[in-house]
Simulated scan of single mutants.
Amino acid sequence: MTKLAFLGLGVMGYPMAGHLQAAGHDVCVYNRTAAKAEKWAGEHGGTHAATPREAAEGADFVMACVGNDDDLRGVCLGPDGAFAGMKAGATFVDHTTVSAKVTAELYAAAKAAGLNFVDAPISGGQAGAENGQLSIMCGGDQGAYDASEPVMNTYAKLCRRIGESGAGQMTKMCNQIAIAGLVQGLSEALHFADKAGLDGRAVVEVISQGAAGSWQMSNRYETMLDDKFEHGFAVDWMRKDLGICLSTADETGASLPVTALVDQFYKDVQNMGGGRWDTSSLFKRLNKLG
């Protein structure tokens, strides 16, 4: 049994922390909305704390899955932050999708405090978190990764170190760039099928078995055709992630024309009132356009 802390109980963090407790670890959780932390402890049998620092005290590993750069800084730094409560040699594992800039900042702060820091963004959505089938892409020191990998495997189907600190976040950017183009392509294919008078389900049954097949196609085409988008990974979060991709591309000199275009399409979805809709709602945007 390992003493752990988990900071952030959103749609991803809530079940991830649950897997850790179910695996026999001693888990203390923190959430900005305390009622959710209390609910989690009541359901899973762990404990909850009023601040990140209290949750992190005595923990061998502190896992976090929060919203953005500022949220991550908030749970790490300051007198009530996790770093202030962690014991020397403990490891902070960040599952949030954030910028490489804040990762570099917090990696340095952790090192200065005698702590380890692993950036470990995740992919697989809410279903992946609930089923313990996440893909985790990691950056950080080899030793810190090796120590934390068994803990992460509690909710992962694949966990891999890509390189030094920041490599995990850069890999997550690749993930979001690839998804953006895939979802737009799938949306256009289904929209085209509808305009051509074809049965979209029959079309997908055939093309999904060939080169056009993808996770997005297999897992989203039915809800797209049924006009159901109140689930999955929210457009608001996707725009946050694509903003990080585009900003980093400016710094590295990468060219992302399709990503930039799809980001604007997601802006259209937000203007339709779909900020909390699943990313597959690009299909709904096309249908609105005609």
Rank of each mutant, 00 (worst) to 15 (best):
M1T: 14
L4M: 07
A5P: 01
G8N: 02
G18A: 09
L20A: 06
A22K: 14
H25K: 01
N31A: 15
N31C: 13
A34N: 14
A37C: 12
A37T: 14
G45T: 11
A55H: 10
C65E: 03
G67K: 04
D70N: 02
D71I: 01
V75R: 07
V75C: 04
C76P: 11
F83K: 03
A84H: 10
K87D: 03
A88H: 15
A88W: 06
A88T: 14
G89N: 04
A90Y: 09
H95M: 11
T97S: 02
A100E: 07
T103R: 06
E105N: 02
A108F: 06
L115Q: 08
N116K: 13
V118G: 00
D119R: 05
A120D: 00
Q126L: 15
A127G: 02
A129E: 10
A129K: 06
N131E: 14
Q133V: 11
I136K: 08
I136Q: 06
D141K: 13
D146A: 15
E149V: 15
V151M: 06
T154Q: 10
A156R: 05
R161M: 09
S165W: 12
S165M: 14
T171Y: 08
T171D: 11
Q176T: 00
L182Q: 12
G185F: 06
G185W: 04
H191V: 11
H191L: 13
F192A: 10
K195Q: 10
K195N: 09
A196V: 09
A202M: 09
V203R: 06
E205C: 08
A212V: 11
R220A: 10
F233E: 02
V235K: 01
V235T: 03
M238K: 04
R239M: 09
G243W: 01
T248Y: 03
D250W: 03
D250R: 13
S255T: 04
P257W: 07
F265N: 02
Y266C: 00
M272H: 01
R276W: 03
T279N: 00
S280E: 04
L282K: 04
L282G: 00
K288A: 13
